[in-house]
Design a binder for these strands. Structure first.
Length: 484
RNA sequence: GGCGACAUAGCCAAGUGGUAAGGCAGAGGACUGCAAAUCCUUCAUCCCCCGGUUCAAAUCCGGGUGUCGCCUCCA
């Protein structure tokens, strides 16, 4: 399996620190607002990375932090007249609502800065003791010139950085590129006691301290957005490697940006779309499917039309699975029978193609291509119905269902219940008032059709369509589904 | 100014040396009372431009042009 490592700027064979186990850390959001689509991309991308590693049999330990102490949070809290920590924790809860909707699995641990003050202060102490950091006026700064490898992740030298640097004036720093490990508290700000007085951590130190605590030195995968390469991740490396003397993360993965009209979506540009607002217009599986339709390192442009196109494509996969389920109704998966060889061999081939795509730096776009190939295979097999025999047919279709479920297990597009994909809209065995009413209307329409009263039948179908209920007449009866 | 990425059909998007996946949209046919869904067929002589390397390049090299990003909080 190949992973593109930002550190080496090339794809490398993935070899975990410990055979069979993967330790990964992904930079999570600063919780001062609802997340936007740009925040959602890494969340979905690395969730998919994790899912695939699990599919491959790795025991994955996944850590995603929340930055709950930060200037932006303090400012927002001040505006709202709210306590910063309670504001942050409120948005942590909101984060989970969006992440759950996008079918993102919970991390094994979601550490927060506010709960790791001791670890952070200890690491800063170590850096001061080792001579990599210095205290000045209640702040503590990391002295970048002391760390030989500074710039190795972002691929530039200190001289490069300073050439065009828009550096803030701060006479406490020995070098303009030095960055804060600890910030002295101003009146009214949340603060913790430390050897340097009351204050709070700088932004970068939290990830170093928390990843070390939960994953140890030299853990496997560290992920985040491209814009974190510098300075955030560069600084994490400087802190961690200086403090421990050991290499930090082995594989650095960075996702590309979401753009709007080809421009980066960001809070500072104001061109961002909240996940919440998008979910009001599109189903969450469409959003996830859309995010995975492009390789994670490429930029991805967002607008409603593109999501609409994605939802049509997704509809095709959904339909295929529903047709498959329909065909398998009444079939006992334990019934035995040798799978029809033609389909069965093709399924093996497709699984191989899917894995090959994912093995190549998580090429979800290519993998989705094989998912569509699977759908075509299922549809045409059902359409032609040329199987070696009934038992062979069901056994092969059952295999196809397994494969579909496996693809989905990795990509996480459709929600599952008890390991089964729960795609709504099969109609049939329905519950609830809407379902009963639709069934009733269909019954009446069928009577009209029997009398060849086409105008009435068509009118019912049209009016239901206006209500986003689609009727499909098939030789074996009427199928209906909700649209969107 | 420094560093970097990208440029593939109407749209989205794979593809890093062997002759262009997949999806959306479109066209024709089958099926249907008509639709829808599904199936079959079709839809880039060619991958921004100009040179070069090679038996062979969308893929490698050089030079352009264009777009975007990082260097400041940012996923």
């Amino acid at each position: 399996m190949l992973i593109y490592n930002t550190l080496s700027r090339r794809k490398e064979e993935f070899v975990p620190r410990e055979p069979g186990k993967v330790a990964m850390y992904v930079c999570g959001p600063t919780t001062y607002n609802f997340i936007h689509l740009g925040n959602a991309r890494p969340i979905v991308v690395f969730d998919t990375v994790r899912r695939y590693l699990k599919y491959k049999g790795y025991d994955v330990f996944y850590v995603q932090n929340f930055t709950d102490i930060d200037d932006k949070i303090i400012n927002r809290a001040r505006e709202l007249g709210e306590d910063p920590l309670s504001l942050a924790s409120r948005y942590v809860n909101e984060y989970f609502k969006d992440a759950d909707a996008l079918n993102v699995m919970r991390a094994d641990i979601h550490p927060k800065v506010s709960g790791h003050m001791d670890e952070i202060i200890n690491m800063i102490k170590t850096l001061v003791d080792k001579g990599y950091a210095y205290a000045a006026g209640g702040d503590v700064y990391y002295e970048v010139r002391k760390f030989g490898g500074y710039g190795k992740l972002s691929g530039r030298t200190l001289e490069d950085m300073q050439a065009g640097a828009r550096v803030d004036v701060n006479e406490l720093k020995r070098d303009p590129m030095d960055f804060a490990l600890w910030k002295a508290a101003k009146p009214g700000e949340p603060a913790w006691d430390s050897p340097w007085g009351k204050g709070r951590p700088g932004w970068h130190i939290e990830c170093s301290a928390m990843s070390l605590k939960y994953l140890g030195e030299n853990f496997d995968i560290h992920g985040g957005g491209f814009d974190l390469i510098f300075p955030h991740h560069e600084n994490e490396i400087a802190q961690s490697e200086a403090a421990s003397g050991a290499p930090f993360a082995r594989y650095w993965m960075h996702n590309g940006f979401i753009t709007v009209n080809q421009e980066k979506m960001s809070k500072s540009l104001g061109n961002f779309f909240l996940v919440r607002d998008i979910l009001a217009k599109f189903a969450p599986e469409v959003v996830r499917f859309y995010l995975l339709g492009t390789h994670y390192r490429s930029p991805l442009d967002f607008d409603d039309e593109k999501l609409t196109a994605a939802s049509r494509g997704l509809e095709r996969l959904k339909t295929s699975f529903n047709l498959l389920e329909e065909a398998l109704v009444g079939y006992d998966s334990g019934a035995g029978g040798r799978p029809d060889p033609t389909l069965s061999l093709r399924l093996d081939e497709l699984r191989g193609e899917f894995e090959k795509a994912m093995d190549d730096d998580f090429n979800t776009a290519l993998a989705i291509g094989t998912w569509f190939d699977l759908a075509r295979e299922i549809n045409s097999s059902l359409h032609k119905d040329v199987f070696a025999g009934v038992a062979e047919k069901y056994a092969a279709l059952s295999e196809a269902r397994e494969l579909f479920i496996d693809f989905n297990r990795v990509l996480g597009v459709f929600k599952t219940e008890n390991g089964k994909i729960a795609i709504q809209g099969t109609g049939g065995e329905s519950e609830g008032l809407v379902e009963s009413l639709v069934d009733l209307i269909i019954e009446i329409r069928q009577e009209a059709r029997k009398k060849k009263d086409w105008p009435t039948a068509d009118r019912i179908r049209e009016r239901l369509k206006d209500l986003n209920i689609i009727l499909e007449d098939t030789p074996s009866g009427v199928r209906w589904k909700k649209q969107g």
